[in-house]
Nucleic acid binder design. Structure first.
Length: 457
RNA sequence: GGCGACGUAGCCAAGUGGUUAAGGCAGGGGUCUGCAAAACCCCCAUCAUGGGUUCGAAUCCCAUCGUCGCCUCCA
């Protein structure tokens, strides 16, 4: 039984699928004003692993992730670049899909965009006004926080405390400093949509509520995102959605992960501050398996620091798994075959316990050792290797050589033949030149009793 | 100031009351090899500090020091 920690209850909650429908998972996606960085990769890889594992455990998942394509940063960036917000969004959505493919992240079932959901947003705001949870002032619509006694339940904040510290920006006409905008009246030059309150645009939090309601219904099973979204974003989503539907809790489980920190710093990575690391840079240098291994080496609720050393270490580890999973079995194996069952059980036990990927990986490393030992002893390993690839696949690890290396395979084989002739002639110096030359290109040769194998090193 | 986390070997990191504190990386010593590489074997921590609770604590409590996140637009 899979259990996940919920921020709302502070405890482990059982993940169970309602028999009448798929399990509903909503993950907060990016705001589309800049490319995604490694911190986003960490988030999306985590939820990808969660989904893959749930599916492995025969849970049918409906996975929705939003694109927020209207908010202050996007308006500002579009203006700076002299493009429309739509053009800006399209550019970053295309890049997002490329990044997800490179990360081996499975596509969500739906990727709704805020600006494509305006009717649903207006409907939701209207309902909140009707229920007296929201009020309109000069074309702005605000959520009335004080009407919700349990406001703050997710972040553990006390409403009185928060209101004491909050401020009203100039030009805002809130009843209460803690109130937040559901709808913002259009300013000159900004894109806007017609609404019962005049032309305007949605506030920051409302789009997620609207999209979640439209694509997943009034109550969902898992709502996820980074810990930086707990307040105010998710707190406000809960307030809006529960007020509008009367259904509590809006999401059974609120799942939040720790944030990635910058190298040479102890602070989190964020696009506001610069110094970001684009996802494709990391994948080009270390590879997808290494990046995913780096992320999964620690528990998702803890912060993680991005360092080159840690990525190198993760890459070496991933290579070790790949070597064990891909090594050729002896031509005529004999003796006791490796039994992967105990490792599979260990893996499942770890994953069930709030997605303990560090222990799940440890189980794979233990299995790798046993496979390697059995291979040395010429015992059957193929079944165990298949099990290993299956379990690694749950973590989204392919344990494959890159396409570039695969494309070069015929040439590498040719050089191996040449080197063999040199070795047979005891011309070791020249043979070593071939090997060293390949190594410089990232190809390592390994001489075995059956001949010479090569791999990416 | 409020709320929430965290501090385990050279590095990353699991473990949250009870056999010898997972796993990875790096390092040292072996086996194998023409030499390597890979692989395998062996070695490498008493858990920030100080108290306390307990038969027993890295695990619970208190204090101290240090670090981080959130407290309105960030995964």
């Amino acid at each position: 039984m899979l259990k996940l920690h919920s921020t709302l209850s502070g405890e482990l909650e059982q993940v169970v699928q309602d028999e009448s429908r798929p399990l509903r998972m909503y993950v907060c996606g990016p705001n589309l004003y800049a490319p995604c960085h490694v911190g986003h990769a960490m988030s999306y890889v985590l939820f990808d692993v969660l989904r893959r594992y749930m599916e492995y455990r025969d849970i049918d998942v409906q996975h929705v992730q939003n694109f927020t394509d209207i908010e202050d940063n996007i308006l500002r960036k579009a203006q700076e670049d002299g493009v429309t917000i739509d053009e800006l969004a399209e550019e970053h959505i295309a890049r997002f899909y490329d990044d997800m493919a490179a990360l081996n992240v499975q596509r969500a079932h739906e990727y709704p965009r805020a600006t494509h959901e305006i009717p649903k947003i207006i409907e939701l705001v209207t309902r909140l006004i009707e229920k007296d949870y929201a009020y309109e002032v000069d074309g702005d619509v605000y959520y009335r926080v004080a009407k919700r006694p349990d406001y703050g339940k997710l972040s553990g904040q006390d409403i009185e405390e928060m209101l004491a510290g909050a401020r009203i920006e100039p030009g805002e006409q809130k009843e209460n400093p803690g109130d937040f905008a559901l709808w913002k009246a259009a300013k000159a030059g900004e894109p806007s949509w017609d609404s019962p309150w005049g032309p305007g645009r949605p506030g920051w939090h409302i789009e997620c509520s609207a999209m979640s309601l439209r694509y997943l219904g009034e109550q969902i099973d898992i709502h996820g995102g980074g810990q930086d979204l707990i307040f105010p974003h998710h707190e406000n989503e809960i307030a809006q959605t529960e007020a509008a539907t009367g259904v509590e809790p809006f999401s059974r489980i609120w799942m939040h992960h720790g944030l990635l920190r910058l190298p040479n710093s102890t602070e989190k990575m964020t696009r506001h501050l610069g110094g970001l690391i684009p996802i494709d840079d990391v994948i080009q240098r270390w590879g997808t398996d290494a990046l995913r291994t780096f992320i999964l080496f620690s528990h998702y609720r803890k912060p993680l620091t991005f360092t080159e050393e840690a990525l190198d270490s993760a890459k070496s580890g991933a290579d070790r798994l790949r070597t064990a999973a891909r090594a050729a079995e002896d031509a005529s194996p004999a003796g006791e075959a490796v039994d992967a069952a105990p490792y599979r059980e260990h893996f499942i036990e770890a994953m069930d316990d709030d997605l303990n990927t560090a222990i799940a990986l440890a189980a794979l490393f233990d299995l790798a050792r046993e496979i390697n030992t059995a291979r040395d002893e010429k015992r059957p390993i193929a079944d165990a290797q298949a099990a290993m690839l299956e379990l690694a696949g749950i973590l989204g690890l392919t344990l494959e050589d890159t396409e570039a290396a695969m494309g070069a395979a015929p040439f590498i084989e040719l050089l191996i033949d040449v080197r063999k002739e040199l070795r047979d002639a005891k011309q070791f110096e020249q043979a070593d030149n071939v090997r060293n030359g390949l190594e410089a290109l990232g190809i390592a040769l390994e001489d075995t009793a059956e001949g010479t194998a090569w791999r990416q090193g």
